[in-house]
Design a protein around this nucleic acid. Sequence first.
DNA 1: TGTGACAAATAAGTCTGACTTATTGGTTCC
DNA 2: GGAACCAATAAGTCAGACTTATTTGTCACA
Lengths: 233, 233
Amino acid sequence: MTTPGRGLHGHVLDTLGPAITAGEYPPGSVLRTDELAQRFDVSRSVMREAVRVLESMHLVESRRRVGVTVRPKAEWNVYDPQVIRWRLAGADRPHQLRSLTVLRSAIEPVAARLAARNATAQQCAELTECALGMVANSRGHQLEGYLIHDVAFHRVILTASGNEMFARLGDVVAEVLAGRTHHEVMFEDPDPTAVTLHVQVAEAVREGDADRAEKLTREITVGALEELDILAP
Amino acid sequence: MTTPGRGLHGHVLDTLGPAITAGEYPPGSVLRTDELAQRFDVSRSVMREAVRVLESMHLVESRRRVGVTVRPKAEWNVYDPQVIRWRLAGADRPHQLRSLTVLRSAIEPVAARLAARNATAQQCAELTECALGMVANSRGHQLEGYLIHDVAFHRVILTASGNEMFARLGDVVAEVLAGRTHHEVMFEDPDPTAVTLHVQVAEAVREGDADRAEKLTREITVGALEELDILAP
DNA sequence: TGTGACAAATAAGTCTGACTTATTGGTTCC
DNA sequence: GGAACCAATAAGTCAGACTTATTTGTCACA
């Protein structure tokens, strides 16, 4: 997606980042810049740049005379797209997917409500187009085609909300949806109910019916939660 | 809050970060590492580390033969606490505060619902204590004391939800609440209705009444939205 | 006139080595 | 037993030389 491994320091991050977020180094572990530089066969300057980036993500803390210590998970910048990607690629992928799905369930209904107020004619058209694309790909194991339109649909909703914080969650939603299609049990065609709901959300937004847009989107996200067995009776 | 200006590269960031997020350099502007190093009177290595951090926040992009170009606002990592702080300190503080309040209004009700399910006895006790502290400071212009308990209350809710993504928004909520108290019109004592709502939320969570906890919290956040004249009739 | 290959200019990227400084942990002395 | 001191350590900083990718301009050729 985003340009990976740009430069030597990027390559180092591609290895160290996943290792740390996977919990390979328990909180409080101490790494030394020089040692890491040797291990990755790069100069200290390059390694220092990598450490600075990890530090800005609050994954590690660099202190004089001590070294580079790994921070506890609770302090990580878990909204950093890079961190999200690393964690999704690692062992606690399921846990991460659940967290993100809950986040979606909170954000998207509100985003849909705002979209019903703020969406431009162009965005309404895109929304309808996406919904139709989902319908067209909803039968006959066209999962990839369905996914593309599904992702686009939710991106438009988030963007049309007019809230920059919501808009930036587009990538996260894309990851979650892609994850569901590719790694979870999804051999069957998508749930027809969900498809219908998307069409109806597009309608509601077009008509400026904020209440309905929110309610329908909430139904979509509840479905997503149920798929992961979140939501106790 | 977090240790500021750690090292030379930190000092550079404290100047460059706010400048960029304030829109002082329009998107597409080109900076050169060497020139910046001269301007800040630091070595190229230090400046490179600073640029790497800005790059990891997606504020800038560094390309060979071109320089360090400023990215459009839509690509920034707006969830990065550092970026949030910079923007709150800058010119579009009001806009940022509105975005964050909308985010709160989406997250906190769901967090309260989850907290009603997952909160430990200890967390329930903390919650009650915070609510009582709010009551105790709700009259007689004790705004600072009120703020402390208000912040603590929402932190506990977010943490008790059991969702790590929600938990990490504690700092954001703290910023928003502090911003409201310190920079907005708030000479009067807090709205008694809001105080009561907090007490009731604590009750609902303690009793495990998820529906009620969510509904009451939604009322709190609606109040916050109304204060900023968000929410059209 | 347009288009292709080729060459020069440029700014980031990388490496090395020497030096500085803050912090820690031990040691000594009262 | 505690306070003051000192040495060890690893990050922090700097300067300079070199490499490499990318852009831009030029020139020849179709």
